[in-house]
Design a protein around this nucleic acid. Sequence first.
DNA 1: GGTAGGACCTC
DNA 2: AAGAGGTCCTACCG
Length: 905
Amino acid sequence: MSSSELTGQRILLIDGHAMAFRAFFALPADRFTDGRGQSTNAVYGFTRMMFNVVASEQPTHVVVAFDLPGGTFRDRIYEQYKGGRDATPEAFHGQIGLIQQVLDALGIVWLTVPDYEADDIIATLAARAAAQEGEALIVTSDRDAIQLVDERVTLLQPVKGVTEMRRMDPAAVMEKYQLAPARYPDLAALVGESADNLPGVPGVGPKTAAKWIQKYGDLEGVLEHAEEIAGKAGQSLRENIDGVRRNRLMNAAVTDLELPVDASAFTLGRGDRTAALAVFDELAFGDTTRRDLPDLFFPEGAAAPEPLAGQEVPADLPIAGAEDLRALLAAAPFELALDVADDVRGGALLGIATTGRRGVLALEQLDQDASSALAEVLDSAELVHVADVPAVRVWLRAQGYELTAPVRDLALEAFVLRPGARSYDAESLAHDLLGTVLDPRPRRPTPATLKKETAEARAEHLAVASARLADSAAALLPVAAHLDAAQEEEPWTRPLLEQLEVPLQRVLETLHERGIAIDRPTLDQLKDEFDGFVAQARREAGAIVGEEVNLASPKQLQAVLFETLALPKTRKIASGYSTDAESLIDLRDSLPPESSGHAFLSWLLRFREMSKLTGYVSGLDAATDGTGRVHTTFQQTAAATGRLASTEPNLQNIPVRTAEGRRLRGVFAAGDGYEALLTADYSQIEMRIMAHLSEDAGLIEAFRSGEDLHRFVASRVFSVAPEDVDAAMRSKTKAVSYGLAYGLSAFGLARQLRISQAEATALRDGYFERFGGVRDYLRASVDRARETGYTETILGRRRYLPDLRSDNRQRRENAERVALNSPIQGSAADIIKLAMLAVESRMREAGLGSRMLLQVHDELVVEVAPGELEQVREIVVDGMDGAYELSVPLEVGVGIGRTWLDAAH
DNA sequence: GGTAGGACCTC
DNA sequence: AAGAGGTCCTACCG
């Protein structure tokens, strides 16, 4: 190889195994197959990743390095190297070979070297590029590559999945680790690398390691001065010096491998387009892969081959006006897909698609003819596919159209199948289920831009936005087909959808339409009062510090507290020191009562409390409609456990804990023509579900005994008679009970109860001793979830938790807590959803004027028409306590009053 | 204008 | 560092 082959060139070096593995876990294996039982998720993810990086980085050369099966020289040094890893998942098998086929077709050289890892190949080539004054870009999730970064070598680390990359240059490494890249292996040797089964020095994390290396120059320096490092960490270091030396030996990259291939073989542009398309066909990759295939892979000038006659995919016919809509109607029966957008330049845009046609209608510009054709289409379609039916229905209604045809909500279906996705809009569904990536949405312009914009620019923007919306609507049709197949494979989704979620969706739409009445005089009164308190607190606090300070800014507060007033530091957070209420109260109570710091903190806390309340007041004020009601939207696909969420405004977090906050509930009142609000809530539903699921005899007895639950449990835990349970015992047991359902740790419990960790552990052990069934259930339920990959509620609602098998401890433990909580929280959600269906339908059947308005997780709020109180009470209580039969009774409490505050019970 | 982090409200 | 959410505010970035 000549010494200047890579001069001025840009070589892309990809760790094939690391990236394939990452892609495998980023995409669902069961969702990507070649149709013959071979999973292709890793192949697909890897290929998309490579397309993205090649397109955005425009390298001149590309090499992909792979590990070989069997060991390397490192295993001979340390036989536990990379030990303890789970077996490669079944579905991953064969995918490396397929990736290599793709690379072959694209003319990309892939390399393996016996006895060495992919990392070493990359290190060698990166070093070569740098020595020849070229540039190297490394793509790997392996942190050992950090040591290779320098002025000529940049590392791209996948941040999430395989599409989003973090760019690590020397400055970024410095920023993140406080060390030069060359010192990173020193740090890793001290800290350890769990992925490689290289244990570090216990008690030494990145912060400590970096501090030592900075002080003593490098790892050798640290080890030379090991004797003088004080404290536990120093002791721990001295005890583990051998391990540290071994780690450093293992994590050093080899940069002088003999590679048999000349660098000229690595140039980009040697691919065979026909071969590549054939491989994609074999893999059953879709059109988007073909579309996004960078031309850079192929010899210059070789454009895409002309499609053979008869194989050309016809472009969809447009849907742009009355004529197209009438054509649609003439072709009845027809199915539709809709997606909507508010575009600052185009107004209300409706994306509309059917087989072979797609388009966008600017609703405000439709003529009479088109408008009536659209209305007819929305009524006479056989089925309309939408992501979020309630939102689209409301949106259309605001534009003067009614969606009356039968609908299918793909967001809701996808949610039941796989809850917990970030979003279920059309674009996300296409991406998550099909792997389709739509063109980016055009940016929203500033008013200034809009003002000086030319008509041409506006038209161009509108064209882009419209094409995008037509695409997202059209994508819903294959999404629906995909969901059909998924439901065929996972039939448990069907009853949950058909008997619970779909009927509930109609109920939630009704709740939104009804809204709840706001008592205007009370709201105004509270606004005046709370505003006054905020102003007072701001004034008093300001007078103490004497300088201009925005109390709502944690950053400015930190300056005042810890610099101006020089108060003791609180708990550390990312941006400095915490100023949350808990920290501030501790801090205040540590100061002399007469001190200015004490007074300042008191006023600050008062400011926080009162400005929170004014926030609610103004939020409600802004959300109230012309008739004096607010219409929250209940989101059905927001909470992965199956709970509902409430937005715009959120009526599920109206204050109740403090007396002042609770007054806000007096704002929600029975509306004109109604007599009262009735609230009904489940008593301790989560603990009842715990009793049911665990079949713990003690807990079941607690609920059947009629005794106060926490008193009963405390009497068992502390071995005293129920009447001898004091307040402290009761509150401690209560904390454990709820903590259990949240995946409690001794640390968390200790902090919550402000007791020592030892005491917390003893408390939990005592609890488990008396309620062994609970312990056994919790253990078994996590084990089972780890086995099956998901948790399950009483109605069979699943939540998939791949992190239960993560080898990252934090992720794994987090997933374990989620696994403990989800069946409990989710079953409670199932039950109240059943109750809502029962209450709504029984009230309608009874022909009552009363109506359900809100759900707050374990509570329903109903507006009672005159004379219907007793009937409503009976329907609500029966509907709720009869919603589902557990092995313990469901108890329902009821309160009635003019306002939500008065209805407290 | 969009996003992240901090804080804080609910069940 | 105990589960599930939403909203507001500031600060920051392009």
